[in-house]
Design a protein around this nucleic acid. Sequence first.
DNA 1: AATGCTTATGAAATAGTGTAACAATCGACT
DNA 2: AGTCGATTGTTACACTATTTCATAAGCATT
Lengths: 165, 165
Amino acid sequence: MTAAPYDIASEPHDHAACVDDALARAEALCERRGVRLTPVRRQVLELVWRSHRPRGAYDILDDLASDNRRRPAPLTVYRALDFLVAQGFAHRLESLNAFVGCVHPGERHPTQFLVCSDCGAATELHDRDVAEAIDRSAADRGFTIERPMVEIKGLCPLCRDRAGS
Amino acid sequence: MTAAPYDIASEPHDHAACVDDALARAEALCERRGVRLTPVRRQVLELVWRSHRPRGAYDILDDLASDNRRRPAPLTVYRALDFLVAQGFAHRLESLNAFVGCVHPGERHPTQFLVCSDCGAATELHDRDVAEAIDRSAADRGFTIERPMVEIKGLCPLCRDRAGS
DNA sequence: AATGCTTATGAAATAGTGTAACAATCGACT
DNA sequence: AGTCGATTGTTACACTATTTCATAAGCATT
């Protein structure tokens, strides 16, 4: 039996399918929720999904500038990103000031990230034990959680192996 | 029996003693480690400790400008902050781009923060369960942790009660 | 004290990230 | 068509952080 692949974020895979899937899900969810996946928002979502590495707002802005005729204002990108995050289609990584597509759009579970400091890939986790430990810890202190933020920096298996060899 | 105070960060207390204590510990640790707590670094540490709310580098810079005759360059503050963080005398809160004094300088345990979105106070935790859950979660995926970052946004008990009443 | 080495600070410019304020436009519904 | 709310455009600005190069301060060794 071979080891299971670490994660889609750092394993080679059919990424075009990833993107198509993400766009299709977003479309469906917007329909259901009665919100609009406008061209700008759709395009930004696509750009966020260009890789599994978190991307800065200005990176995305540069892409928009080359894809389109005119360069939109930063605010345009930030507004689209705000929308995508609010709808759960993307996540913001506070420690990187960057954004990455959400692999489980629609569901709203507490999320953690493993961020590789070498290749930059960000792996989205939904670890119940971590979430519960955080809930308990906050509750013990009478603290009401609004948004727990867990971003774990380190080396992904691929980069670790590469460094070790 | 009265309830234990929530935390020094949001409870009234003798803050001057807090600061004195922090400076004394830093001094002792620098001595032991053979590194220098220069005037700039000392002053920045003091300013980081002006409250239990995380402070931005430019806030600190403004304070330096009014305390001293001349306004130092931003870099001066960032270098001092880098030193303080490296020595474990202060923490950087990634989600706020801000810095706060470390309540347990010298020891190097994994740290979590409860950040009140209302009053801004940041409470430093060292919760073993949270740390271990994170360690397990990363280990399961072959991920080597360098720096786990846990910043929990929400309402501290004081602000929650105030909001509720 | 003079030398050379390392560490720390100063100064100026610039890069990177994010928002405020206001105007114009679009879509859905009377 | 008219109206309302949501979305986008435009300009300017605020905040956060680093690059580059120069200077100075501490320290060990002659």
